[in-house]
Amino acid sequence: MAKTKRSFDIEISETRCRSCAVCWEVCAPKVLSWKPPLNKAIVKDLAACTGCRLCEWLCPDWAIVVRPVVLESSEALT
């Protein structure tokens, strides 16, 4: 069985985000970024996410949810 890389799903609420910059600054693999003019957080490079959850734990406005993606069994076996 080939080893599958764990992948994650990141959901950011634009209504909750208040552009404080904490999430994209703490994200070491630079998954997160911001979008002008309001500089709300966005996902830029999802594949690089390690699932460390720092962004989710530190977002002061609880705008980010990180979920492990559950792969279909057939997909997981390839």
Binding site: T15, R16, R18, A21, W57, C59, P60, D61, W62
Partner: peptide, 17 residues
Amino acid sequence: DKSFRYCPGCGLGMAQS
């Protein structure tokens, strides 16, 4: 539904989490 009563970036939201 919207943000908390703290200022943007405040540590209180983090502590609450």
